[in-house]
Design a protein around this nucleic acid. Structure first.
Lengths: 200, 200
DNA sequence: CGCATAGTTGACTACGCTCAACCCTGGTGG
DNA sequence: CCACCAGGGTTGAGCGTAGTCAACTATGCG
């Protein structure tokens, strides 16, 4: 899956992109603010969160090369708050301009729909996984769905604790569950990669 | 939010829609099968599920008037299995024809992206809610997000047990939690509608 | 070498699930 | 008109699993 990048945009739009250089912990936009732009993380990392009185819920980490707030195009307000996790360089693409570009460039529309579809399926998968009570089963299903069929291995790009939040588990439970699965010979671990041993 | 309906399609595509009349419990398509079409429930209800050895996970109920498997357009295989929950009439729209229509009718593309965006935000909300451990908080957040600001009331279209699965709670826990909130005066209930009493 | 962060392990707790019994409602048929 | 039934909803008791808190180890980086 290729993410939407600034290079894919028509030249005249590329020229009108604004870049923001941000430090760690800076807010790019807040939930409920009127939408004005969509964004691409050129480098760094952005965290998307929702606030409520008692809780802060992180629901996605946007890595370098990924776009975010794409749904701003069709809503009046942002559905979450975006904060930089690292010093980051962010491309800001004006909403109106982007909409115009979508009208003018069918290929861009196609790439955009493709990406939106991909994201949607992704979130749906995570939601499905949350319906599985047992940490063990949830983790196994995640591995099954995410693993390269060729080498039966998943290489993690980020620390385990990110995987834990993605799965809706505490880091401790994930650690324990991985250990158990390893003891039982169902998986092997080596640094950042996890291999499924048995056939399913 | 208006869902994609068959009436919104260009006439020449409408004429090529095939209709399936199905009884309860019939399979429309299976996970991993190659995608051939997108669908609209004209009447009845469809349940989207995922299978795995131990579990069956229902992740959405498609009501009359809603489309489903829209993401089939951009994937080679279906991401879930669709089963009728009631006797249903289903419109089957060939994938290739629909893609052609998207290319030819920008308004349709717009409606499609709009719907996809809406669905995406919807699923994201549910995923966020699952990050909230406490049944009480999860339910409150759900209510806050779903309620009409005008009358502070949410009217349920379906039995409570559906709400329970949407929230990832057992029906019993949901029932208890609602009772507690009512005792504490935070909400009022009347038949199928729930009203938030206090200001937030 | 020292610090910060990630990961692991242990003990305890709490919350929601499960199972079960029961109530309530609406629909159906005699 | 009542009897019956099915499904949804409510309530109770007990259990189990994942969270929490804490201490400790491992790893990486300046």
């Amino acid at each position: 899956m290729q993410f939407l990048t600034t290079e894919q945009l028509p030249i005249n739009l590329q020229q009108r992109i604004v870049y923001q250089i941000l430090d760690t912990g800076q807010i790019i936009f807040q939930q409920h603010e009127p939408t004005e732009a969509v964004f691409v993380v050129e480098c760094g990392r952005v965290r998307l969160v929702s606030f409520s009185e008692q809780q802060i819920i992180t629901h996605y980490f946007v890595e370098a090369g990924e776009s975010f707030a794409e749904t701003a195009l069709f809503s009046d307000t942002y559905a979450c708050t975006a904060i930089t996790e690292l010093p980051s360089r962010i491309a800001v693409i004006d909403k109106e301009l982007f909409q115009q570009a979508l009208r003018d460039y069918p290929d861009l529309t196609n790439a955009y729909m493709n990406q939106l579809t991909y994201r949607f399926e992704n979130v749906k998968l995570l939601l499905e996984l949350r319906s599985i009570r047992s940490a063990r089963e949830r983790l196994l299903q995640y591995l099954i769905r995410r693993i390269e069929p060729s080498n039966r291995t998943l290489t993690l790009q980020r620390p385990l604790k990110y995987l834990a939040t993605e799965l809706g588990l505490s880091a401790e439970t994930l650690s324990r569950t991985l250990s158990h699965l390893e003891e039982q010979g169902l998986i092997s671990r080596k640094q950042r990669s996890i291999t499924l041993n048995e056939d399913w």
